[in-house]
Amino acid sequence: MQKNEKIYVAGHRGLVGSAILRRLRADGYENLVTRTSAELDLREQQAVRDFFAEQKPDYVILAAAKVGGILANDTYPAEFIYDNLMMEANVVDASHRHGVKKLLALGSTCIYPRMAPQPLKEEYLLSGPLESTNEWYAVAKITGIKLCQAYRRQYGSDFIAAMPTNLYGPGDNFDLEKSHVLPALIRKFHEARQKGEPTVTLWGTGKPLREFLHVDDLADAVLFLLREYSGEEIVNIGVGKDISIAELAAIVKEVVGFEGEIRYDPSKPDGTPRKLVDVTKINGLGWSAKIGLREGIESTYQWFLDQVDKQQIRGLS
């Protein structure tokens, strides 16, 4: 990618998109195009076609998606499948119609079968039933992968798809009702320290294993793949190693400075025992994650504190 070429980042205000923008700017890319959802509804085909006809981007990074947890997926299945399908179909097709040089679509490891062997290899896609709690989102993201593959096969379009593992970092969601485990732990321990509480109780046993990739590492991988990879096969992006929730909680507790006791409530669900991606492929291409977990948690907590100071996180002062 030349520094003066136009790059459109769809979903630039989210955790992923904002990190990609930061990285592009840090690398000297200045011809960047963004639109908020209010400015451009990616579900509207004609609006997307008009935008591409006007802007004529050279590169497209598709990080826009409707996302949410188990409750949201269960409550709004129609929106999760429809909104994501329409966004992907419109952006991929418009990219083809208007001669985009390269498109990278970001998916999620929820595309893999519920009972797939660990670690998750790219070839496990469509080898078994999906996890029922997020199948609406997963089906839409799988369709996005297949769109990229279909346009590559029929038209020779250089469209690629990458599947990141669990992400965290600046810009994360710290709402306890909607956040993922790592930002939820940061907020719980922070609030407990602020209130002087003697204990923090966490759901489950603490035994499940999870992998965590800093969003700035993901942004680094995205640029690497745009520069170095062209193929129909999907590519996992991850660290290649996991950690138990109990070990993770101990690190967060120490970083935040909470001095009380951690307790577990085994009556609450643990979720999937393990979720780790196989990163043999991307490592073989020459990329690997660089940000250590403790280092990443420290920087994320500092960002969280900065947002608290700016009163950008609800319910905290």
Rank of each mutant, 00 (worst) to 15 (best):
A192H: 01
A192C: 04
R193G: 00
R193H: 00
Q194F: 06
K195H: 04
K195Y: 04
G196T: 06
G196I: 15
G196K: 01
P198K: 07
T199Q: 06
V200T: 00
V200S: 00
T201P: 03
W203V: 03
G204K: 08
G204N: 09
G204D: 05
T205N: 08
T205V: 08
T205A: 05
G206R: 02
G206Y: 04
P208V: 02
P208E: 14
P208A: 12
E211C: 11
F212C: 03
F212A: 15
L213K: 08
H214T: 04
H214G: 02
V215Y: 12
V215W: 13
V215R: 08
D216T: 03
D216F: 14
D216Q: 12
D217F: 02
D217P: 02
L218P: 08
L218F: 02
V222C: 13
L223R: 14
L223K: 03
L223C: 11
F224K: 07
F224E: 09
L225S: 10
L226I: 03
E228N: 12
Y229K: 06
S230M: 04
S230K: 11
G231Q: 03
E232M: 01
E233T: 09
E233L: 13
I234P: 11
I234W: 00
I234D: 00
I234R: 03
V235C: 04
N236V: 08
N236S: 12
I237S: 15
G238I: 11
G240V: 11
G240K: 11
G240N: 09
G240W: 05
K241H: 15
K241N: 15
I243Y: 07
I243T: 14
S244H: 02
S244V: 06
I245W: 02
E247C: 00
L248D: 07
A249L: 00
A249C: 01
A250C: 09
I251D: 01
I251F: 05
V252N: 01
E254G: 07
V255H: 02
G257Y: 04
F258T: 01
E259M: 06
G260C: 09
E261I: 03
E261Y: 01
E261A: 08
I262Q: 00
I262W: 03
Y264S: 10
D265S: 14
P266W: 13
P266G: 15
S267M: 14
K268P: 13
K268D: 07
K268V: 12
P269F: 10
P269H: 05
P269W: 06
D270A: 10
D270V: 08
T272H: 14
P273H: 03
P273M: 01
K275I: 15
L276P: 02
V277L: 15
V277Q: 07
D278I: 06
D278M: 06
V279Y: 13
K281P: 09
K281G: 08
K281V: 01
I282K: 13
I282R: 06
N283E: 15
G284E: 08
G286T: 13
W287N: 09
W287H: 12
A289P: 13
I291Y: 07
I291G: 10
G292L: 14
L293P: 00
R294G: 09
